[in-house]
Design a binder for these strands. Structure first.
Lengths: 190, 190
DNA sequence: TAACCACCGAGGCAAATTGCCACACCCCAC
DNA sequence: GTGGGGTGTGGCAATTTGCCTCGGTGGTTA
């Protein structure tokens, strides 16, 4: 934290990118942002150093995974963190094989991102969770992810989840806490 | 399948180990079985070759992850597949960093195991699922995993899931499909 | 400007699900 | 035998869900 981390954030949702970049900036990092693979690569060309890259796996038509190699070639010690709306175990394994340092599912706070970058993923996970997450918690997290993947659009998220819009509405209202995650999207559209 | 795969299976549930070994055997593999880390290491000493190892992450007091290094040191080309009752993304990343080839959650059929061994995990996962699993499906899978982790004990699984035993019973009866999951005793499945 | 369109929030109601009681039965260890 | 844990089942009230219906808002387009 004393020596500013130099970060590259690649995230196609511009709003989320800006928010995240700002949050990381507050925590003492120097953040550069790109919204697609091409501009990320262009940005990379001009860089002299890079401590870590945070890549959204889902970059419109591009795939964040394909950025891992170029980054690691240019800056071998650079850590790469993958973010995705929904993470699957298979995707996490694939990302790791390609050189990613860690893998997170959105929504991820700036603190979670920094923790994931600092953690040593090989030593983590040894203690098995062993704690079967309650069905409630699992559902809630899945709902959050789905909502995130649909830009907060309740109607479409409900459809994707296979439940009624009214039901999703009611469930969302019932949770007092959980990750706030409010963004002011006036109203989603295609 | 022409050239017999030589496999090492490490699984502490003896019933499940035997079933799995048999199923793998039917598919043309030569399988050796160990039920704990120590005997796995002992077995390893006597081996001349090994194509792949299938490790349960949860070996009683031992952790399957700790077997990866010895195996890979002795047989560098050997593929290592981790199995676990509940997989988390973090655990999958950890396993991969330690040299695992792939990572599966139980219950996994012999075919799934062989597929996971043959697949190139680095190339997989590129096409994002993008298909938000329905809440129903997610719940169902989680229930299956939890049930598996509790050796089929409905009462304890229900408790772990945070739902009423009666509810879990009713849900289980309602699913006609899914993996059959018939077993005569309190552990192992096909 | 008005006419759409997609979305959110909410009310109401029948139908389904859940939680929770109780009871019978089984198997195994004392 | 007795007790303890596990399963299967029934019944019933309380909650939740699905579904239909509005009204309101903000954008887009004729």
């Amino acid at each position: 934290m004393n020596n500013p981390l130099r970060l590259l954030l690649v995230e196609d949702d511009e709003l989320l990118a800006e928010q995240t970049a700002r949050a990381l900036g507050y925590r003492g990092a120097t953040v550069q942002v790109a919204h697609d693979a091409a501009s990320a690569l262009a940005l990379l060309q001009q860089m002299e150093t890079l401590d870590a890259a945070i890549l959204d796996q889902n970059l419109g038509e591009d795939n964040g995974l394909d950025l891992i190699s170029p980054i690691r070639e240019q800056f071998p010690p650079c850590k790469v963190l993958l973010l995705t709306g929904y993470g699957s175990i298979a995707a996490a394994v694939a990302a790791t094989h390609r050189g990613a340092h860690n893998y997170l599912t959105k929504p991820a706070s700036a603190d979670e991102i920094l923790d994931a970058l600092n953690a040593d993923p090989a030593s983590l996970g040894s203690p098995l969770p062993a704690t079967p997450p309650s069905l409630q918690r699992l559902e809630w997290e899945h709902i959050q992810r789905t909502l995130d993947a649909h830009d907060g659009n309740i109607s479409r998220a409900a459809d994707a989840l296979g439940i009624h819009r009214r039901t999703l509405q009611r469930r969302l209202k019932k949770r007092p806490s959980a990750s706030e995650y409010q963004r002011e999207k006036g109203s989603g559209k295609d």
